[in-house]
């Protein structure tokens, strides 16, 4: 059993500092095991989140030696034997205590997305979808909401500025993608995506994709296709003329714009 050096950030919203621990480590341990041992034997009140301990729930997100990671999936033998391991809370979200941050921002973003709205069932009461048509959506639905992608998204990191406040972040871009590409869904979220959810603020640096523990191709399979849909709807003259000729109407106004216009016209009529 080797003794390893850990530096763990301890503090709260008012400030804090890295605290040193010397702790015995057994073979096969992951960083979360070591933090639990510190908690049980040296710092009973060390705050951290965890649940499944198998990379399935996305609770134990933190920055380990500066890298956003799941502590339960970071094996101790991935570090050299003399390396000091530094654990810090996610930087994009406000600290509550020690390694626990306030991630409520993310739960608020989900509510901004129009929910799933399925087409009617077939006459026999079934929905039919083919596996090849749901493969892409299933990739997005693997998301465990660890919010590591939200943590590294520079748009969200700098969201103090007013202009960038609207962006929902990569996790919720793929949530939108999972709905827009769902074979049964009949809702249209493209105007909202452009005008309210801040899709244009993402400039595709792919940091989100790199940290995804589920290896979801957030940028290539989710964000870029959504951006293409926005371009197609709002900017592509060929597509716009083509739709006009064929008499196809696509929404360019958001629900709230439609509602404002509706209210306005009622006023005029009144």
């Amino acid at each position: 059993m080797a003794i390893r050096r850990f530096k763990v950030w301890r503090g709260d919203a008012g400030g804090g500092e890295l605290t040193d621990f010397q702790i015995p480590v057994d073979p096969g341990m992951v960083v979360l095991d070591v933090l639990h041992r510190i908690q049980a034997t040296q710092a009973n009140d060390l705050a951290l989140r965890w649940n499944c301990k198998a990379g399935k729930c996305g609770s134990c997100s933190m920055e380990i030696n500066g890298q956003p990671k799941l502590a339960c999936m970071t094996r101790m033998n991935s570090f050299s034997e003399t390396e000091t391991i530094t654990c810090q809370p996610l930087k994009t979200f406000p600290v509550i205590k020690d390694l626990v941050t306030d991630v409520s921002f993310n739960y608020e973003q989900n509510k901004r997305i129009a929910p799933f709205k399925p087409r009617p069932r077939d006459a026999d009461g079934q929905y039919r979808m083919y596996q090849e048509d749901v493969d892409r959506v299933q990739e997005f639905r693997k998301c465990i909401e660890c919010f590591l992608c939200q943590d590294v998204c520079h748009v969200l990191r700098d969201r103090e500025g007013r202009e960038t406040q609207s962006f929902i972040g990569p996790r919720f871009m793929i949530r939108v993608a999972s709905l827009e590409m769902h074979p049964l869904d009949t809702e249209d979220r493209i105007p909202e995506l452009k005008k309210e959810l801040g899709a244009g603020l993402c400039n595709i640096t792919r940091c989100c994709t790199e940290v995804c523990p589920e290896h979801i191709q957030i940028t290539d399979n989710g964000i870029i296709p959504l951006k293409e849909r926005i371009v197609d709807r709002f900017y592509d003259p060929v597509a716009i003329i083509g739709r006009k000729l064929l008499g196809i109407r696509k929404r360019t106004k958001t629900r709230s714009e439609e509602a404002a216009q509706g209210a306005g016209s009622e006023d005029r009529d009144g």
Partner: peptide, 9 residues
Amino acid sequence: LLGKAHTVM
């Protein structure tokens, strides 16, 4: 947090 309950396992 919401969505972390043991059902995910």
